[in-house]
Design a protein around this nucleic acid. Structure first.
Lengths: 209, 209
DNA sequence: CTAGTTTAGTTAACGCTGTTCATCTGCTTT
DNA sequence: AAAGCAGATGAACAGCGTTAACTAAACTAG
């Protein structure tokens, strides 16, 4: 019965080929500027073949976003393991998030800046939402630890985590999209933001950007 | 020569009619979900007529963005005039920015969340860009005032202004794009962000979200 | 070994989209 | 009345996401 296994493997290989092509095109040209026909042309299959492996174009995006989240999550776990001080671990995690976004602007745009409009399917982008939730939960865990240890003077871990997320997303997305703006030196901007927001939560830090 | 004037007036009236229809549709259905044909149908003209008054669909949105930004600018000036405390004025201005973005997500998305690819037309979205720069300059002015009065302990007005901008942009854009995320109550999130970041700059404020 | 069924992939098509161009209409001027 | 002209349009182009019907190959059962 090795035949069925081979066929299954070939199916999965084509599936991966489609994902690779889509990621490459999405990342280099932007989701909206990539058509199903372009993806099909790249893999040298008919456009309709893609629909045998993915529900629609949004489904394709969903899978790729989940993938991106997974990479970020892995990085975060590595930082956690190698950093004992919770505040330092949190700060490094936030910093890693920003760096990741700036280093992979198109992945970031795809994942965090593309509006995922769900037609009438309530399960649309389920993978991306789940992965994003995990990433956020990880951040929330770090914030909870800082709160429990008295490093932060806060009483709402969830709200605080969302504030932190918004802060680093603000920096990251603006740096990506408004690259023609007259920015202050990037390093100073990022560290200044982290200083400001962490000290605003009560963490000991010299005031003054 | 009242005839030519009447014709000119009628032209401008139709122009305004197109803008009104486009604004209504963009705001309620989203830029991407509105076609030129839909706009044309609404004003009971042929789709091609719109091209006699606007360069293309993006031009239409550019005009609307400028228009809406003018309203934001007006609001900011009103706040300034009616608020003597500079910190309070700044805070209200930041708040107005966020509310503006959430109330006009499509205008906001175009202005601050789309990479304005100036393919062969360097003046594309010129109106919107200019309005955005004015908005930032206004913010920087407020920050400078707070710094001069010793409300903020900072030494880089420009960096601080960019941090504030990034913070409120983070909140605004995430609220727009990730509207299915499990957000904390919006009011608490926004006020929490403002508390955090302003106190992080040295402004007197009870710590603790 | 053949007949029937499943599978993988394709072709053609539908109903959209933004945009362009040649054409037509109705008013103004000569 | 004739000519000119500005404003509006119908038809068309090239592209889009997606679906339905179809073909060809491979597998399975008798």
């Amino acid at each position: 019965m090795g035949v069925q296994e081979r066929r299954l493997r070939e199916k999965q290989e084509l599936r991966q080929e489609i994902l690779d092509a889509a990621r490459d095109l999405f990342v280099h040209e932007g989701y909206d500027n990539v058509s199903m026909r372009k993806i099909a042309e790249k893999i040298e299959y008919s456009p309709t073949t893609i629909y045998l492996y993915f529900k629609d174009k949004a489904d394709l995006l969903d899978q790729l976003c989940e993938e991106t989240f997974a990479r970020l999550e892995k990085k975060s776990l590595l930082i956690d393991r190698s950093t004992s001080d919770p505040l330092e671990a949190l700060r490094k995690g936030l910093r890693a998030y920003i760096d990741f976004g700036i280093r992979h602007p198109n992945h970031y745009k795809l994942t965090f800046m593309t509006e995922m409009q769900t037609g009438d399917d309530p399960d649309a982008f389920g993978r991306t939402r789940a992965a994003g939730q995990r990433t956020f939960d990880h951040l929330a865990g770090q914030v909870a630890q800082c709160s429990k240890l008295g490093i932060f003077q806060i009483h709402d871990v969830k709200a605080t985590s969302q504030i932190l997320w918004a802060a680093i997303h603000g920096i990251t997305s603006l740096q990506i999209v408004k690259h023609r703006f007259d920015w202050v030196e990037r390093e100073r901007l990022i560290e200044g933001m982290l200083d400001t927001v962490l000290s605003g939560l009560g963490a000991p830090k010299a005031v003054g950007v």
